[in-house]
């Protein structure tokens, strides 16, 4: 029963993906309550701890280490909140159901959200870097700056997948609380605020269980601020987390909608 009328050119499909991303962007831009905290929070923390409370000798080196940690802290938010809270709300309010009934190309919905998470992560990190380079006098080779930015932007993906999982499990009311319950403790337990070696021993041993630990180590390593320099291993771990979270979330979405 197929005929020419229903064939859709690949350019039209690509256009649908881009439209989805464009309007997702406009939507977030027009929702300052999401956009502003996501972009500004990491920078505010950085200003407080790396600039105001961190004066004196060796402060620039300490600030550079903090930059790596806070940048990871910064990229977790768009992934976790953008997916966790927004997907939960859209599921609850029936938008997701409508999109499933409409012929939206499969994947366009998640693609748009993923792209936005990466974009917001990039903005948050760039702002953080600007503060680091000016107020905190952090000096690094350009390659390190760009490697850190690239690691952070790609590092959004496991948090998107984790957020998606939360969004499929929790309702819109509960999602912000659950996301915060993951976001803040994980940041601490992964050594983003305090170096891992200052944490109690059992917490150090538990650290590899948190995705943020791996991204934190990559961020430190690529920006030349220490870290364990096992970038490939950490990247592999992150990829594993991403695939696992995503697969569980997809299964639930397909079942429950």
């Amino acid at each position: 029963m197929m005929d020419a009328a229903i064939a859709m050119s690949s350019t039209r499909v690509a256009r649908a993906w881009l439209m989805e991303a464009k309007y997702e962007f406009l939507r977030l831009l027009r929702t300052p309550s999401f956009a502003l905290p996501t972009i500004l929070f990491p920078s505010l923390f950085f200003l407080l701890f790396a600039v105001l409370f961190n004066a004196g000798a060796g402060s620039a080196e300490a600030a550079a280490r903090m930059l790596a940690g806070y940048s990871v802290f910064g990229v977790m938010a768009p992934g976790l909140f953008g997916f966790g809270v927004i997907v939960a709300l859209e599921r609850e309010h029936g938008l997701l159901t409508l999109k499933r009934a409409l012929p939206m190309p499969p994947g366009a919905y998640l693609f748009a959200k993923m792209l936005m998470a990466m974009l917001f992560a990039a903005i948050a990190v760039l702002l953080l870097m600007l503060l680091a380079a000016t107020l905190a006098h952090v000096r690094m080779p350009l390659t390190d700056w760009s490697a850190l930015l690239a690691a952070d932007v790609l590092g959004v993906l496991p948090f998107c997948a984790l957020g998606l999982l939360v969004g499929t499990l929790v309702g819109g009311q509960g999602a912000p609380a659950v996301v915060n319950l993951i976001y803040l403790p994980m940041s601490f337990l992964s050594g983003l605020w305090l170096p891992l070696k200052l944490l109690p021993r059992f917490l150090q041993e538990l650290a590899p269980a948190w995705p943020a630990t791996h991204l934190g180590q990559i961020a430190l390593s690529v920006s030349g601020q220490g870290g364990d320099h096992r970038v490939a291993m950490h990247a592999l771990a992150l990829a594993g987390f991403t695939v696992a979270f995503f697969a569980i979330a997809q299964r639930r979405l397909r079942k429950k909608g």
Partner: peptide, 25 residues
């Protein structure tokens, strides 16, 4: 559908253009 909260912050024109993009013709 009976209950569908569309994106509150999008303009009507944008919602229509987005939905149109899903269709071949």
């Amino acid at each position: 559908l009976q209950e569908a909260a569309l994106q509150q912050s999008l303009r009507v024109e944008e919602l229509i253009r987005l939905t149109m993009s899903y269709y071949p013709r």
